[in-house]
Each structure stands twice: as C-alpha cells, then as structure tokens.
Design a protein around this nucleic acid. Structure first.
Lengths: 190, 190
DNA sequence: CCCTTTATTGAGTAATCACTCAAATATATA
DNA sequence: TATATATTTGAGTGATTACTCAATAAAGGG
C-alpha cells in the first residue's frame, strides 16, 4: 500500500559525499544539498533526518569505498606493490571532487568543536591504518620487505605520509606525483 | 587631538589567530571574535574592516612566526639538526591551539570556494618550503647530507611529511612523536 | 575650557542557516 | 475503484550570520 520513493538512496548519498568532500561540513548548505539531490526540504528530512546524519552516511561510503579500492589493488598486485601504487592511485583520480582525504578534512574542520563526526572520521582512519598494517605484515611474510620493522609502525608512518601527500596534492604548484613516487620508492628500501 | 585605541593591535591579531587556527574560518563567528578580543562590532570593523581581513593578518602572523622559529632553530643547531628537530618542536608545543598547520587547515577549508585566503595560505606554504630548501642546500654544502638529491625535491617531500605529521598529531590514538622521530631519522640517511 | 578628531558603543540590518509541518500527491493492496 | 500508507511539496519557523551606523565618550592641542 505504501508509496515508494522515486530516488536511489545510495546514489543520493554518493552525491552528498562528493559535495561534502569538496566543500566541507560548514561549506555545504542545505540549499546546496537540495539542489544537488533534487530534493525539497521535507523529502530531505524524511529521508535522512538531518545534515549531520547524511554526512555520517557519506563518510561511511567514502571509507568503505576506499577500503574496497585498496583491497582490489591488493588482490591484483600483492601487498607491497599495492602499497606502492596506492599513493599514485589516490591522487590520480581526476574525477574525484578533491585530492585531500575527506576523513582528514572532516577531522580538521570538526575536531575543535568536539563534533561526533570528527570521531567517526578518526575511526575510519584507524580502520584504514589497520588494513595498511595487514598489508605490511603480508609483505613481510612474502619476503618482499624485511621484518625488522613493526607493521603497525610502518602503517602509522605510511598513513601519515599519505595524508601529507593528499594535502600537498591540493596545493597549486606542487608536484604531488613526484612525492607519491618517493613514498613508493621508500617502501622498496624496507 | 585624536583619541588613541585602548588595545594592542598585535595582541588582538595573535588572539584572533589562535581562534581561527583552532576553529577554522567558518567555525569562528564574529561573536566568538568579539568576546575573545573584547570588542564591540563597531570597534572591530573600524580596526580590521572585515572578518576576512583579520584572518589575513592572522595568517601572516602565523606564517612569519613559523619562519622565525625555524630561523632561530637553524641559528642554534645548524641546518640538518634544525630540520631534524623541527617536526618534534612543531607538534610538541602544548600551548598551541592546534597541532595541525593553520595554513593547511585554511587551504583545505577554503580552496573549494576559490577563496583568496586559500591562495594566501598556499603562498605562505611556498615561502616555508623555499626556506626548507635553503636549509637542505646548506646541509649539503656543510657535508651533512649527500648532494645527490635536489634540495627543492627534498624540501617538497619534507613539507609534505610535516603536513602529514601535523594532521596525524591531531588524531586521537596516534603516536605522533614516533612519526616525528622517523622523519628525523630518514633525514640522517641522506 | 573648548574644539577637533578619533574610538567606542550596541541596537539594528538584511541575508542565510538548518529545519518543520500541514496539505497535496502518488502507489500498492483489498 | 476505494482505501490505507507513504512521499513530495514549499512556504514558513526562529536562530544566527557578517556587518552598519548614528550616537556617545574620550583624548590631545589651542
């Protein structure tokens, strides 16, 4: 008996993610969202509840897509080569709405206000970091890198490098690809 | 004949810088500024003209103070050791309003809106980068590091690492000091 | 003390913010 | 087709935004 919504919820979340990713939390108004999602306020709030709730969903989509991209890379290239390739992949996606990581942008914007979304972002970052650690462990077991280093420490440093790379990639006049190459090269020396 | 202002302009700018640094551009309202600077709207606009103009001054102060801190370090420690110490110094300042770099926060928040302040931030970052390059050049001339690498490339990578470090230092559950040590250690291997 | 010049005050501006809700509309089942 | 249930609509909410301006206060030179 009910009436079905005439939109694809997942697609709406993806579009919201792109907006939030590019413009940030405060930089994205409800008018922006209404026009991007083609929804009137009533429908918007019936579907998502609040701007924050939609941002939360957008963050989750961003994070799980990122994990999936890394996993697929690992499946085709193996642990070390996927870690070496990932930096280039991440800044090379020209259809992405921004070069910088949405999780770090969220963290930097909302951490000071103790906003729950900042905690969400940090959790997703920790998730990613532990996936990096897994890959380092696998690379050690495969003999691709020496096992003198702690995989957790390698992952911590690798993620920090990635975050720096992606901030740098946002800047004008900075050759981010060169930085990505150097990150990959330094992994080869482990 | 004129009446003198009863505030220290430089001190006001420093307080504004701290607010902006911590809370960001959109996250800092005029009410926040009025209460932190103890100024009514009229005085505020007579003194600074606009929120953006004050942010601009705050950015300049942030950048020149950063350069000064690096220069002093270089004077006492020499080029290589100052580059090695700088990461720890930058994340170790507990009285600072934030760990992350205000220039990168500004860039990430305002770049998408093509806000002039984002360009300002990038210019300050370029300034800092060229100072890093100078130090790398000096370190090469002093024989502290090999001269096989291009100082500009070293500076580019170094700044990227610093930006990543400072984002990481903002996160809960991340041992940023360990990352800073690794950055310093990797410089020793040049 | 007067007068000129500047600083300070704080109520008030229009615009925008996230969000609400009653009415209208569409759909699937009975 | 009638009814129950859900979605969509869009004008409108109060709060907050950055900012203005006429009135008042203060300070130094004559």
């Amino acid at each position: 008996m009910p009436r079905k919504p005439n939109y694809d919820r997942n697609d709406l979340i993806a579009r919201a993610r792109d907006l939030f990713w590019q413009q940030g939390w405060a930089g994205t108004s409800l008018k922006d969202l209404e026009s991007a999602l083609q929804m009137k306020p009533g429908s918007f709030y019936a579907a998502f509840g609040s701007k924050d709730a939609l941002y939360r969903l957008a963050l989750e989509k961003y994070a799980s897509d990122g994990l999936a991209r890394l996993d697929e890379l690992a499946r085709t290239l193996g642990p070390l080569k996927s870690l070496q390739r990932f930096p280039q992949v991440v800044i090379g996606n020209d259809s992405a709405p921004a070069k910088a990581c949405m999780l770090s942008k969220t963290l930097l914007e909302l951490q000071a206000q103790n906003h729950p979304l900042a905690q969400d972002a940090n959790l997703h970052l920790l998730n990613m970091e532990s996936r990096f650690a897994d890959l380092f462990t696998q690379a050690q077991k495969a003999g691709e890198i020496s096992d003198t280093h702690d995989p957790a420490a390698l992952a911590r440093r690798y993620q920090s490098d990635l975050l720096g790379l992606r901030v740098s990639a946002e800047r004008a006049g900075v050759d981010a690809k060169a930085i990505a190459d150097e990150i990959a090269e330094s992994l080869a020396r482990l």
